[in-house]
């Protein structure tokens, strides 16, 4: 059995998003309780939130953006950059704690104390651009983790798999020029879903051309199509790229019961995806894998999805 880290902190619930917003604090207890009720907590190494060093956030975001975010938050603004990004007075601090916790998990995996980890954080990150908050996201958690791994441990190749039902525009744009970070995303087709990027013909830019891969999925599709596309697009690409660490943007909003999308993945479909990613990590990355929560809004389904997710990480 693997040594698997589990990042969870009550303080991640402090970021409030207001009325009729799907990215609610209750998402996290759903995740936590699913894992707890299955009796998995004692098998996991629990990790708590902590403040990150700002220099790591600055490897991804402009200083000016970070200041703008802090100022907007402390001046009591309830919206930042886009109407989707509703916030409260502690949103900035919560976003920092999310990054800090993830970096702590990364450190433990990279130092060999853990094989892998699941980070249940809020707010999510993959839509956040270098200079702009978008789609419920403020700091691009996964991108910061990738840069941290490269700079602190001299890792050359990081692979990111993003199975949130929305395209991680922020992550793609941050690494589109960079041949050392391979970004793969599978998501609902951008003509039918937010944010409208992640088309099949986006492959990265300049030196990074060929190190971005998108698999858009048409509305109404589910397990079969995901399996077909990941087998066609992801597995061969990672077999060739040979990432030394795999990061996962784990969004659970492609579930058939999640009303954020028209994709119909089953609970078993998610398990298949995670199992395959774990196998890839075992093959090329010594099993090193850090998974970070993105979307997933069905409070009814999150418990089982989170439980299966960490169970697969534990069993390798």
């Amino acid at each position: 059995m693997n040594k698997t880290g589990f990042l969870y902190d009550e303080r991640y619930k402090l970021h409030e998003t207001g009325h009729f917003h799907p990215e609610v604090p209750d998402r996290l207890p759903s995740v936590y309780n699913g894992i707890k009720k299955a009796g998995l907590l004692s098998k996991l190494v629990q990790i708590k939130a902590c403040m990150p060093e700002m220099k790591w956030i600055e490897t991804v975001h402009d200083k000016n953006y970070i200041q703008r975010f802090e100022a907007a938050c402390s001046s009591g603004k309830t919206i930042f950059d886009s109407p989707d990004n509703q916030m409260c007075s502690v949103t900035y601090d919560t976003a920092l704690l999310a990054v800090g916790g993830i970096l702590a998990a990364v450190r433990q995996v990279m130092d060999g104390e853990l094989n892998n980890a699941f980070c249940a954080v809020r707010p999510p990150g993959h839509h956040a651009e270098i200079n702009r908050a978008m789609g419920f996201c403020y700091f691009n958690n996964i991108a910061i983790a990738a840069r941290y791994i490269q700079k602190q441990w001299g890792i050359e190749r990081v692979g990111i798999v993003d199975f949130d039902v929305h395209h991680g525009n922020g992550t793609q744009h941050i690494f589109e020029d960079d041949p050392t970070v391979f970004y793969y995303s599978i998501h609902q087709h951008p003509s039918f879903a937010y944010p409208g990027t992640g088309r099949e013909f986006e492959y990265g830019k300049n030196l990074g051309y060929g190190y971005t891969k998108n698999s858009p999925v048409l509305p109404g599709q589910g397990d079969t199509e995901y399996k077909r596309l990941m087998q066609r697009d992801l597995f061969p690409a990672f077999a060739e790229f040979k990432p030394e660490v795999i990061l996962v943007s784990a969004g659970f909003d492609a579930h058939v019961d999640d009303d954020m999308s028209d994709i119909k993945l089953s609970t078993e479909g998610f398990s298949w995806i995670v199992q395959k990613i774990v196998e890839m990590a075992n093959t090329c990355a010594h099993g090193r894998l850090i998974s970070v929560l993105e979307g997933g809004y069905s409070l009814r389904r999150l418990p089982e999805l989170a439980r299966n997710h960490v169970e697969i990480l534990l069993n390798g």
């Binding site: 009729f20 917003h21 799907p22 109407p83 419920f136 937010y194 944010p195 509305p219 009303d259 028209d262």
Partner: peptide, 24 residues
């Protein structure tokens, strides 16, 4: 719509009697 957050407005439109089509 320039938002990610459409679930609520979709329900509202359905309540108003509109049919939301599966785009496919």
């Amino acid at each position: 719509l320039l938002t990610q957050n459409v679930a609520h407005v979709k329900k509202k439109l359905e309540k108003l009697g509109f049919t939301l089509l599966d785009p496919m």
